[in-house]
Design a binder for these strands. Structure first.
Length: 279
DNA sequence: AGGGGGACCTGTGCGC
DNA sequence: TGCGCACAGGTCCCCC
């Protein structure tokens, strides 16, 4: 489910409820998600004040008053819900509720994750950059470090396909399968193209497309979040129209094109592209 | 050392 | 209706 824009949507949904509150009680309903919870996980959270919610790539970062930061990744199917006192319950299956936090403002935060590909960690604030999940991440797509010039440097000598290279979190942090497909359509580049064989001009265009796609998706998530949260408190899902992702066999959206969107499998994952508009 | 493929999980939707 | 299979928005880790 979550790529960078979805995690950002979750962050903006949780922040007004969580920031400034304390964690009164923390519960885990199993010893692990994808990985084991860190030692004394609940004890280290209980009593902590929540200073700020941030995001790095697809990671949600919750800065605590204890000089530690909680690092959370939603994997493929992770969802956070806000339960207001007397409010509606989330539509997620409660048997996959793995983590629960009761806040000082009487709201409850529940983490639900059927596939358990998500994970959580705790790191000292002054060692956050060295955390094993965060240390090797590349630039944020909307940050200053990401540009056509950066892609050129990162792609030099890469025999890998541009699809695989853009999914590499060390090259650009936060893109997933959907937005890579969308960005490559925007840039008119086929996903199979070896990364090193793309011209400077096209890499400039590609970097602009990545920024545009991500920025647009964040805006869409932010605008529909309130409606969704109002009904059941679950954050992170939103309907977003994609140009190629999931559109195999449908018409290319470029009116003058007339071609049909194709799906191919690259290293076990689906890529969608227009064979006429992308080369 | 870079890169491909398997492993980790459950749920859903489809064809037979 | 039931069964088996393919597939799902991610990441780590092993092996070549």
């Amino acid at each position: 489910m979550p790529e960078l824009p979805e995690v950002e949507t979750v962050r903006t949904g949780l922040a007004p409820i969580m920031e400034g509150a304390h964690i009164v009680a923390a519960t885990i309903n199993r010893p692990n998600l994808r990985f084991a919870f860190p030692a004394r996980f609940c004890a280290r959270l209980e009593g902590a004040g929540i200073i700020a919610l941030r995001r790095r790539a697809k990671y949600l970062l919750i800065e605590l008053s204890t000089q530690e930061t909680l690092i959370a990744h939603l994997g493929m199917s992770g969802r956070f819900s806000i339960l207001a006192p007397g409010g509606p319950l989330p539509d997620t299956n409660p048997k996959h509720d793995h983590v629960e936090w009761v806040l000082s403002n009487e709201h409850k935060i529940v983490y639900n994750d059927p596939r358990r590909f998500g994970f959580m960690d705790l790191a000292a604030n002054n060692a956050l950059a060295q955390n094993r999940f965060l240390a090797d991440l590349g630039p944020e797509p909307l940050g200053n470090g990401f540009s056509g010039a950066w892609l050129r440097e990162a792609f030099t000598g890469k025999a890998q396909s541009v699809k695989a290279a853009l999914l590499d979190q060390r090259i650009v942090a936060g893109l997933g399968n959907i937005y890579v497909c969308e960005a490559l359509y925007c840039a008119g580049i086929r996903p199979q193209t070896p990364a090193s064989k793309i011209s400077k001009e096209r890499l400039e265009k590609l970097s602009n497309c990545v920024r545009k796609i991500i920025a647009t998706a964040i805006t869409a998530g932010g605008s529909t979040l309130r409606d969704f949260a109002a009904t059941d408190g679950a954050l992170g899902y939103f309907q977003h129209r994609f140009s190629v992702y999931g559109r195999e066999g449908e018409a290319c959206l470029n009116k003058e094109c007339g071609e049909t969107i194709v799906r191919l499998v690259q290293s076990g994952r689906s890529s969608f592209y227009c064979p006429k508009c992308q080369h």
